[in-house]
Design a protein around this nucleic acid. Structure first.
Lengths: 333, 333
DNA sequence: GCAAGATGAGCAAACGTTTTCTCAGCCAAA
DNA sequence: TTTGGCTGAGAAAACGTTTGCTCATCTTGC
């Protein structure tokens, strides 16, 4: 008639301790590989725990004020183009350590963002990763004075934050250099609106390789825009280009389609490279698009590892980390 | 020198109670709108709490064995095509009640799935939503005897489970009927492999409208497949169709492209309808695709509300719930 | 004027861990 | 033998809430 006798659903550490004939304290230490005890005792406890299928209650653990084994991912990319690869990378490392990820999609809605962030803080997340669909825009919420570490991925953070972005300059350089190496001499760049930071970075990298012959066409991020520019280039007085580096895959697909319709052969007459390596577009283009992949998954992985390190109290130098892009070769050049 | 004097980061309910001049118990009851007390007391406590920016610690709450205000979303759709709209819907209602969603992407990997599910159970989630990229495939993990409620969305669950799917039959019917109402007389169906349940459902609905003149072409889910079938139809001996209902938007886009290349005008000569309403494809097609939208967000919303209801102990009758699709009109018919 | 019921509010237990003390036993050095 | 350090292990506090129980006070009906 003494001691807790609850026959609840889950086995608690109390049950393990009782079964192993030790105290709760010893059981806890045995399972966490801390404290001093005979190797034999430790082993016995572990075995009993495994046998009973014991899994520690994360709530109780979290209550002690230590880790909650939980991180939050904030994003305004409801479409998922960037978020899901990122997400896959983020949870890759953490899940092995028992860490789960809260995904919060706030859609440029400051109030919604606040609700989500508050909920995350209530749940004592170990850290937050902020991510967006556009590198040069901040999320509509201030994360700078939170009690938990914050890491930015694919979105702009405050100056002293840890930020992960893809190395668009390197990716663009490789793409253009690849065109050059294929013997292309007149290479133009068709890309998005000048107001995007990534547009500027990519354009500068293109310019650095091409020099003064550089020719940049800004406009919408759409297939239609690809058609438009091709029409202008081929119907104009100047010699049309033999290489086209596009700011994203949608433009590139428009370009390739427009060229095919004009009877211009890709890649024989003109080589085309896209950016984003959006499988659904790049692979369906005829011919399939060579494109720059931003390695979002890897980016997510790094961000996940970093926020975990910060949560564990490790020091991480603030600054912007550029992760390399990779040129994915297909038949368009 | 008496009582807790900790000056920690977060304000606890203890601080609120002290500031309001009541006991912790009263404070708790005041904030939760339970128990008996003067309206004046309740109001005062609430006011003090608001002033101090008090937010209850979710861990402590969860430890009491009640709700954890947390649900898990399991999916094997790493690409995000289906998951993100679903996710947006799922968290819509819950977040207002302070519920956050763990997103777990398991990629047909049973071991990974188990790791994730275990992590979710450790964290005492109130419920789990299982979702997949294919309606007729089960996730590689058994969720049937969990201690928390499970709801299936866009994936197959056990017989006695609560499952949400889109009403593909109704969507297809409306699409085909729309073609008929536009005066189309010879309508064919180009769709994916026969092994997909959704392919069968959509095909049957098509057949039910068209009758014995039905003509179904099974094959890959790709743009290339659209080209292929158009070539076969227009180069064959029979009169080509004047209406085409496609099993997904990729096929539809291939069809429209192929027709344009042959000089067949869409929608004047032939009307085309797609399925999925995948914006990136449907909107970029020339002309833009009319397509069946599965209302994934709404589906997610229902699933979220249902799992919450179950978590609160409400009874929900098992069975398959079909949510209506919606025909989104664009210029392709 | 008194018993009985209603009302407002506090004490303390409970949730399942981790961790700080504390302590008994043992061994070696003096 | 005594002393002191080391080792293995347990008792109990702590984390921040919620809630069952208790109790004093107030109201009401006789």
């Amino acid at each position: 008639m003494s001691g807790p006798v609850k026959n609840n659903e889950r086995t608690r550490i109390y049950d393990v301790a009782a079964a192993a004939g030790v105290s709760v304290a010893t059981a806890s230490r045995a399972l966490n590989d801390t404290g001093r005890m005979t190797e034999e005792t430790r082993e016995r406890v572990k075995q009993v725990a495994a046998q009973l299928g014991f899994r520690p209650n994360a709530m109780a653990r979290g209550l002690l004020g230590k880790r909650s084994f939980t991180i939050g991912l904030l994003t305004n990319d409801t479409y998922g183009r960037f978020t899901l690869p990122l997400m896959a990378g983020i949870s890759e490392a953490p899940v092995d350590r028992g860490v789960s990820v809260f995904l919060c999609t706030i859609e440029d809605d400051a109030a919604l963002a606040k609700v989500h962030v508050d909920a995350l803080l209530d749940k004592q997340v170990d850290g937050i990763i902020a991510s967006g669909r556009r590198v040069d825009r901040r999320l509509p919420v201030d994360l700078s004075n939170l009690s938990v570490p914050v890491v930015y991925a694919f979105t702009e953070g405050p100056d002293d934050s840890v930020t992960f972005v893809s190395d668009d300059a390197q990716g663009s350089r490789e793409a253009v250099q690849w065109l050059v190496s294929r013997g292309r001499r007149r290479i133009v760049h068709i890309t998005g609106p000048e107001s995007f930071a990534s547009v500027q970075v990519r354009a500068r990298a293109y310019q650095a390789v091409i020099g003064e012959q550089a020719e940049i066409h800004h406009g919408q991020w759409s297939e239609a825009r690809g058609h438009e520019v091709v029409a202008r280039l081929w119907d104009g007085a100047n010699t049309p280009p033999d290489g086209i580096f596009c700011g994203n895959d949608q433009i590139a697909r428009g370009v390739v389609d427009a060229l095919r319709e004009r009877g211009v052969t890709v890649p024989d007459d003109v080589s085309v490279v896209g950016f984003d390596n959006w499988e659904i577009i790049a692979a369906a283009t005829r011919p399939p698009l060579t494109s720059v992949d931003m390695n979002l998954r890897e980016l997510g992985r790094e961000a996940g590892l970093t926020v975990l390190a910060l949560a564990e109290g490790k020091e991480v130098a603030p600054g912007i980390r550029c992760l390399p892009c990779q040129l994915v070769l297909r038949q368009s050049c």
